[in-house]
Simulated scan of single mutants.
Amino acid sequence: MIHRLLHRWRWLGAWTLANLLLAWLISLRYVGYIQPEGAEQWSYLLMVFLGHLSLLVWLGALPLFLLATLLRGIGLWLVTTLWASGLQLLLLLDTFVYAQYRFHLSGFILDLLLNAGGDVFSFSWVAWALAVGGVLGMLAVQGGLGLLFKRRPPSRPVGAMLAVSLLALLGVHGLALS
């Protein structure tokens, strides 16, 4: 039983690592709005990407690791696919909101989206088609990643990446204090 749980955790760790790489790719959209000058600011930006985004992705995956004690097989795969897709799409939506308004998603923006009707935000059928296509694409990517890592979950890169993430997070906060 413990062996099976460890196998599911290795699988989730590999999936989380793949989602971390995907989150980094999505978050590159923010870099165009940041204008670092010099090697020190670029290294700080790199550590923020490595540290803070890693922390967010690993915290987002934490409920899945807890659910892995209860679920297995297709049930765990389905929940993980939906959960990871939702989080990645939320990050992608945040990059679009930031590109448009220069601030991140918040309760205020969600309230505008949900309660203002068409007064503030109106979307064309093309925007809706792109959104539906994006959701379906993300579900396909997440589902494919889950199946790929279920067959062969790598264990070494996950631990190494977790260590790099923690060191980068400590480095960011160490630089911020100095």
Rank of each mutant, 00 (worst) to 15 (best):
R4I: 10
G144S: 07
L90Q: 15
R29N: 09
R156I: 12
L170E: 04
T16K: 04
K150V: 11
A84Y: 13
W24M: 10
G38K: 06
A168G: 04
V164T: 03
H3G: 11
L56C: 01
S124Q: 09
L91D: 02
I74F: 15
A160Q: 11
F121L: 08
L59N: 00
L130E: 12
R156E: 07
W42C: 00
S122F: 14
D111Q: 14
H104I: 03
Y101C: 01
A160D: 09
L112A: 11
S178W: 14
L28M: 14
A131G: 10
A116T: 15
L148R: 13
K150M: 12
S165T: 10
H52D: 06
D119K: 15
D111C: 05
L6T: 14
W83I: 06
L67K: 08
V158F: 02
F108D: 15
P63D: 03
L170C: 07
L113P: 06
W11K: 04
L17H: 01
Q41D: 08
F96I: 07
V120A: 05
P154F: 02
F123R: 13
L5T: 08
W128N: 08
F149W: 04
G73F: 12
A68Y: 01
R156V: 09
I34V: 13
L64R: 05
G73W: 08
L28H: 11
V158I: 06
L91Q: 09
L45P: 01
L78A: 11
R29K: 14
H3F: 15
L105S: 05
F49C: 00
W9M: 06
P63Q: 07
L50I: 06
L147R: 10
L114Q: 14
K150S: 11
L148K: 13
L87Y: 09
A39D: 13
A127P: 07
S178D: 13
V57E: 00
W15L: 10
W42G: 00
S27D: 04
I109R: 13
A39R: 12
P36D: 01
S155Q: 13
F108R: 15
H52I: 12
Q142W: 08
T80R: 10
W9A: 07
F103W: 15
V132R: 13
L82Y: 10
T80F: 05
L6C: 08
G38Q: 09
A18E: 04
V97S: 05
L45V: 06
R10I: 04
G73A: 06
L145C: 08
Y98H: 06
L64P: 03
L70M: 12
T81V: 08
F49D: 00
R152G: 03
G51V: 02
R8Y: 05
V132Y: 14
L112G: 06
L22D: 00
M161R: 00
G159V: 14
L91A: 05
L110W: 15
S122G: 11
L105T: 06
V48Q: 04
W9R: 12
F123G: 02
D94Y: 04
H104D: 07
L67M: 02
L92W: 14
P157A: 03
E37W: 15
N19E: 03
S106Y: 10
L71G: 00
L175W: 14
A99V: 03
I74T: 15
L56E: 02
W9K: 10
V97H: 14
A127G: 09
L67F: 01
D111R: 13
L56V: 09
I2K: 13
V48T: 04
F65R: 00
R102A: 02
